[in-house]
């Protein structure tokens, strides 16, 4: 059984857990403490408010440990706020968090809630069928480093990318009915 954690400080935690529960051989766990960070095989950083989650990571002394585990190769996937937590650089210039993934992320890139949207895209490495993508006050990736593989663009903006053990998506697969991206993440864990 793969122990896949979901960082449970704030945000769309139960949605990710529900998705992981649909996948064979995966045991999803909520992660709030350093012991739990050490116990999991992989971790999802959910959607939510990145400033809130970033502060709680520091306040409860989880930041350094989590960063170390990611640098040492623990598979990690950030959705929306989670992608912001992973980024080495943010636009507009703002306090960065884990600074582990070589991506420059534009926060609230599409604007306020009135600009949130849903679309569909075909991402060959993730699913043979087009999947539904929900963008909620979403960020996108403005630029990537050499080691980063771009998985998906929407209107020429990068919305999904991977760098070795790190996966980042602007959108929220956890609020759709399709667990393809979760399955992709589990395959990624198994292959690493």
């Amino acid at each position: 059984m793969l122990k896949v954690g979901v960082l449970a400080l704030q945000g769309s935690v139960s949605e990710h857990i529900d998705m992981l529960n649909r996948i064979e051989n995966v045991c999803p766990v909520e992660v709030k403490t350093s012991e739990q960070i050490n116990e999991v095989d992989a971790l999802i950083l959910p959607g939510g408010e990145s400033t809130t989650i970033g502060k709680l990571l520091v306040d409860f002394s989880l930041h350094d440990l989590l960063k170390k585990r990611i640098i040492n190769g623990m598979p990690v996937w950030g959705t929306c706020a989670g992608m912001i937590l992973l980024a080495k650089k943010l636009l507009p210039e703002a306090h960065t968090h884990l600074e582990v993934m070589d991506i420059c992320v534009k926060r609230n890139a599409y604007g306020s809630q009135a600009c949130s949207f849903e679309t569909a895209a075909f991402i060959p490495s993730i699913s043979p069928k087009p999947i539904s993508l929900a963008f909620i006050r979403a960020p996108y990736i403005e630029s990537v480093g050499k080691q980063v593989e771009i998985l998906c663009t929407v209107d020429n903006n990068i919305v999904a990318a991977r760098e070795n053990n790190m996966l980042a998506t602007s959108f929220h697969p956890e609020v759709t009915d399709d667990e393809s991206v979760h399955r992709y993440f589990v395959r990624m864990i198994e292959q690493l």
Partner: peptide, 18 residues
């Protein structure tokens, strides 16, 4: 329908927050 879903989704992102 689509907007209503996206709007409920934003509220989901608030969970566990103040």
């Amino acid at each position: 329908e689509n907007r209503l879903k996206l709007n409920k989704n934003l509220a989901q992102m608030f969970k566990g927050g103040v």
